[in-house]
Structures are given as structure tokens and as C-alpha cells.
Design a protein around this nucleic acid. Sequence first.
DNA 1: GATTCGTGGAA
DNA 2: TTTCCAAGAAT
Length: 354
Amino acid sequence: MRDLDWTPDELSQDILNWYDRNARSMPWRIGPKERTTGTAPDPYRVWMSEIMLQQTTVAAVVSYFERFTRRWPTVSALAAAQDTDVMGEWAGLGYYARARNLLKCARVIVTEYDGVFPDTYDELLTLPGVGPYTAAAVASIAFDRPETVLDGNVERVMSRLHDIHTPLPGVKPELKRLAGDLTPNARPGDYAQAVMDLGATICTPKSPACGLCPWRLPCKARKTGTAPELPRKTPKKPKPTRYGIVYIAQSKSGDWLLERRPDSGLLGGMLGWPGSDWTDAPNPAPPFAAQWRELKAEVRHTFTHFHLILAVQYAEFPADFSPGSPYEVISLRDFRVSDLPTVMRKAYDLYRLP
DNA sequence: GATTCGTGGAA
DNA sequence: TTTCCAAGAAT
């Protein structure tokens, strides 16, 4: 690197040595022994983990990854799954378009690729739910190709290593170029994971542990003392508050009345309670006429771009009441609260545990 | 390029 | 309590 007094080879070697001593164990990773013997991890598991890890912490992903791979051990098994089963298993992890694309992608792999994942960046990039980051991650980690991953960790590490003050997201192409200059031809997958591990454990957003960093000597932001304030980002808009009403109805025999949300948009494809729109002044929309009663407590929930306050109303519905789509009557035996997205589970908890 | 799309943990 | 933000992709 012209600005660093270290060669790319020296830098990548330093962090690979650090990784060999400090790699965290994760269910989708292979052990240190098979790593050095050239054994590659299962592309299906690498792909699954990378989809789940999009904007999601390792701690949140682990149990979901275990459940998914136990229930659907191969891409063929996943491709044959029911849509509603996959959505229910994803419930609580968020960003539900990922689950819809996960299933879509598995079916493309089976029908278009004979059940075998493609091994190039360009082919991976065409798959549903696979963008520039995930294509590079799968190509490097599962197929040993020298592609460059650029996620939030790499952005932070590169902006500090080179002391870049230009704000994101505009500076992304330059960070990608700088990251690419460091990507080695040998063990590119381990290198990618090493930089991300470094960002997650040492080069953290707040109070980075520079004293423990394998790049503490070359790092320019550490010299200047600007590391904790990098990377700079363009300011984000404040979140408005919206309001809504949900209707919880149960028959005498215990059947619940739920609603399957449309495939696109917020919580797309997920099961939930019937309800109003979520606006400044919501329009009441009870699923049937009854003496609806209201809980004293409200649901408070924050999505990516707005706060939500939900009033919870409840009533009994007749056993012979059988509404059509999008409503679904689910028996007490078949109902799993874990199939609901978190905001809907909060409403259930308020109703069920007063 | 700007928006939309979840959730939970940490400071 | 509020803000930040985490191994981003689709539109």
C-alpha cells in the first residue's frame, strides 16, 4: 500500500496469522485442521449462514441456523419445503424478504443448477437474495475464489486503516478498491472472515481495542487518534411514530383467527393478527362485528424506519365462522406463537399474560 | 442515489 | 429512554 509502508502481502499475512489463533467457532465454519488441509465448507451451509447474517448479529443467527439445517439438511430438502413452514421457521429473525428469497433461491438451484451451487461471483450474483456482499462471501469462503467482501465490518476496518474521512455510502467504491488491494490469492475465504472477525471483536464501532489489533502498527487512524469516529456516515432521518389496532379473536374451542399478510411489503408473507392500517390516525377494521374490548396496555415496537404503537382489541368468534383469504383459522393444537413475527408475538403476550 | 425492510443488544 | 447499528438486497 502506497500510504501504509506495508505491502498487501505483509498485511494479509498478519491478519491470517491472527485469525489462525483467534477464529471464533461457528456452526457453519469448518475446524482449523481441515481449514489448513484445504477442505472447503458445504456451500449450502455457507450460503444459508450468509443470508441469515445480512444485517444480523452472529448471536441472533446461531439458533436459527441450527434449526434450519436440522430441518432441511440439503438445498433439495429446502426447495421441497412448504412456503408457510419456511416463513414460520424464520419468524423473529426479521427482514422477511430474506426468507422468501431463500426459498426462491433453493428452488432455482434445484431446477436450474441440478442442485449444485454455482462457484463464480457472477453466477452467484444472479441468485435471488444474493447481492454483491453475499456473492463474494460464498465465492471466497465456499469456493476459494479471491473475491472481495465489503460489509459493515470491512468498511469500518478499511476506513480506519487508511484514515478515510469521506462519508458513507458515497465512499463505498473507494473502500471496495482498498479492500480489493489487500485480498490475497491464497486462503481468500479465511482472509474475508478474518477481516470481519476483526471488525466484530477488535475494530468495533465504539471504543475499538486497538492495543490488541494485528494491524495496530500500519493503521493510520490509530496514529491520528480518529479511529473511534470512523467511518463517517451521512446523517439519517428521524423515525416517525405510527399507530394501529390489532384484533385478537379466539373461538370457545380455542381456535385462533389469524391473517396471512401479502407477499410484498412490511412483514410480507408472514402470519399475524388481523388489524387496521398503521398510520397517523388508523381506520378501525375489525374482521367481524362483535363487542370488541380493548386491553389497557399497548404494544410498542420499532421497525427500521418508524415507531409503532398498537392498541389490542379482543373478542370471541363463533365456532362456525369460516372466513376466506387472507384470514386463517388455526386450531389450538396447530398454533405456534413462534410462527409469528415479533411485533405480533408482543400483542399475543399482552393478551395472554396480563 | 434514496427508500424500504426487523430485531435485539449495547452504550 | 433513545440512539446506534449488525457478515445487505431489492426497488
